[in-house]
Design a protein around this nucleic acid. Structure first.
Lengths: 213, 213
DNA sequence: GCGCGAATTATTCGAGCGTATAATAAGCGT
DNA sequence: ACGCTTATTATACGCTCGAATAATTCGCGC
């Protein structure tokens, strides 16, 4: 009876592989297709191994959800911090959110699959909430820094209203742009996003869109 | 051997019941929980009956998806047509989209569950596309009528840009408002929506929000 | 009120699910 | 090079899934 030969990997490596395989399966065939066996095959291991690294399938799914959400926020934040002015950072943050790899059918599919489970499972709802609030906070920080830079006084309440509106707009464009990707040229979406945010914040046309200050 | 007594229903009635039961199951426990047996139980029949009215489970799911999407658009459109001016119709349309029953955890859960399947199954993608385009068109019609009424000339391209932006904003607020329902008071969301759309279209403050012309 | 078509139930089937447990091979410390 | 730990495989179990088929009961036309 010959067994498969195998390679003993480090814990971090294996967990990462398993999570990546989980996401691949969900993206390709929905949460229904993310079975223990499919995931294991995709990761190049056998099913039993999953229970060696996770308490059960559910815990692995939660880890996968965290990974997706963290990835999205981090991509946008990473793009933002490269800007030199508050205006540029805000601009970069917005553009990053409506540009690949955030705007990507795979990402959307994963996001939606998990969102639809926040109703059924409290643990997933908590993960969502955590990430939503951290995203909103990041945006609010960028916004208020921008207004300071522009020497425009704003009450905290008004800043929050703006943050909610901009967040909604960015989310919505992300949705539209990903679901109907073939309808938009790539830069068309980003341009629209900037023009819309500009209007939303009641800036002058070009105040945010112009490439250089 | 005693069998259950039963009532022979009309085809339309039964199909409706089965679809309603399907949606209940998905909303409560995700698409995983929408098993033939669960759905049948919820509809008060036995599992075999499903295959009497539908080719299979999948076809029933598609019918259910159509029902959800049609319901959302129709609610908003129905609210709009009651307005007497183009301005009022636009206003009503926007508010309806961020107000129950459109803004509802159940609706969102259903929507997300189906969206996540548009990647895996072409048929679902087609249903989505159909409804997205019809929603966008409805919005574009309302917008251009509004601008005519306001005697504000707009190129078709600009009108489309506005439609895309407003659509994104409304979708995003719908998402936010539903996912973090406890964060917003009910009218807070609608108010924010109107203020934001106002800014987005570069209207004067109050031009859209004021209750009466 | 009877018979006949068809709506509905009951039962069965094979496949695939997540999990548990035992056997095994890998690779490190020595 | 050997032995020990443990990461990994292999196999089995009990359940539930969607689908197919056979049995039955409903209710309408006559």
């Amino acid at each position: 009876m010959n067994r498969r030969t195998y390679h003993r990997a480090s814990e971090a490596e294996r967990r990462e592989d398993l999570i990546a395989a989980t996401l691949d399966c969900i993206a390709e065939s929905g949460i229904q297709g993310a079975t223990v066996r499919q995931i294991a095959t995709r990761a190049g291991v056998t099913g039993g191994l999953i229970r060696h690294y996770f308490t059960g399938k559910d815990q692995m799914l939660q880890a996968a959800y965290r990974k997706v959400m963290a990835g999205m926020t981090e991509t946008a934040v990473a793009a933002a911090i490269e800007g030199e002015t508050a205006r540029s950072r805000l601009r970069r943050f917005i553009v990053a959110n409506v540009t690949p790899p955030v705007t990507d059918p795979r990402t959307l599919s994963l996001w939606a699959a998990f969102i639809s489970h926040t109703q059924a499972d409290q643990s997933f709802a908590a993960i969502h909430r955590e990430n939503y609030l951290s995203f909103l906070e990041a945006l609010e920080t960028l916004l208020s820094a921008f207004f300071v830079e522009e020497k425009r006084a704003l009450s905290p309440a008004q800043c929050r209203t703006y943050a909610i509106g901009v967040n909604a707009l960015v989310d919505g464009l992300w949705l539209e742009g990903t679901l109907a990707a073939d309808t938009f040229a790539e830069h068309e979406l980003a341009e629209n996003a900037l023009i819309s945010v500009e209007a939303l914040l009641r800036l002058h046309p070009g105040e945010l869109t112009a490439e250089q200050q």
